[in-house]
Amino acid sequence: MLVSAIDHYINAVVLQGEREAREDGSAVVEAHHVLLAIAVHEDTAARRVLVEAGLDRQAIRDALDREFEHSLNAAGVSLSSFGSPRATPDPRRRVGMGASTRLALERAFAHATGKKDLRPAHVLIGILEAEVGTVPRALALAGAERAGLIERVRQTTATEHW
């Protein structure tokens, strides 16, 4: 079986997403973990768009941390009151695929005319198109305008080559 460049890319970002999930102490890889993975995967238009928007891995991580604290505050819980340590990663633990990641990949495939036309930019679009959830809340807190990001990523799909 011939493995395409997009297969390698998706495998790489999902594996990096697993590392991100483990670092968070999460049992599943969610879309925000894959977004972090996209931000570190070199030589793709998807990463370039994120970086040009000021969303490198650290900026996304900071936005996700703010989103977590903001969500706790909305529930009446102050993170600073507890001083809880970050999760202790377990490198042996296998993490599953979360619903937000599955949905993001479905949206990504829907944007390509076929698997041979699927690009990393489509994966990023699939993540950014989520209307609700951690990613849109974190991006809003980071001051990133999702619609503008999606448009910039869409523009790259016509010119992105392997």
Rank of each mutant, 00 (worst) to 15 (best):
M1D: 10
V3F: 12
S4D: 07
S4T: 15
I6N: 02
D7L: 10
I10D: 00
N11C: 05
V13A: 03
V14T: 15
L15S: 12
L15D: 12
Q16H: 06
E18M: 15
E18D: 09
R19D: 13
R22C: 04
R22S: 05
R22F: 08
E23A: 14
E23I: 06
G25Y: 04
A27I: 09
V28L: 14
V29H: 07
E30I: 05
E30K: 03
A31E: 04
H32R: 10
V34Q: 06
V34D: 05
A37N: 02
I38Y: 14
A39N: 01
V40A: 03
E42Q: 15
A45P: 00
A45V: 04
R48G: 04
R48I: 03
V49N: 09
A53E: 11
G54R: 09
L55C: 01
D56P: 03
R61C: 01
R61G: 02
D65I: 10
R66C: 02
R66P: 02
E67W: 02
E69V: 13
H70M: 05
L72F: 12
L72N: 13
L72Q: 14
N73C: 01
A75C: 14
G76N: 08
G76Y: 10
S78M: 05
S78A: 13
L79W: 13
L79G: 08
S80E: 10
S80A: 12
S81Y: 03
F82E: 05
G83K: 08
G83F: 06
P85T: 14
R86L: 13
A87V: 02
D90A: 14
D90F: 06
P91M: 09
R93E: 09
M97H: 07
G98D: 03
S100E: 02
S100D: 05
T101F: 13
R102V: 15
L103K: 15
L103T: 11
L103R: 15
E106I: 14
A108S: 06
F109P: 00
H111G: 15
A112G: 08
T113W: 05
G114W: 01
P120N: 07
L124Q: 06
L124K: 06
G126A: 11
I127Q: 02
I127W: 00
E129L: 09
E129H: 07
E129A: 12
E129K: 14
E131W: 00
E131S: 10
V132E: 11
V132L: 05
V132W: 02
V135M: 03
V135E: 00
P136G: 05
L139V: 11
A140R: 15
A142Y: 09
A144N: 07
R146Q: 06
G148S: 10
L149W: 03
I150A: 08
I150T: 12
I150C: 08
E151T: 12
T156P: 03
T157P: 00
A158H: 13
A158E: 10
E160L: 07
E160S: 07
H161K: 09
H161A: 14
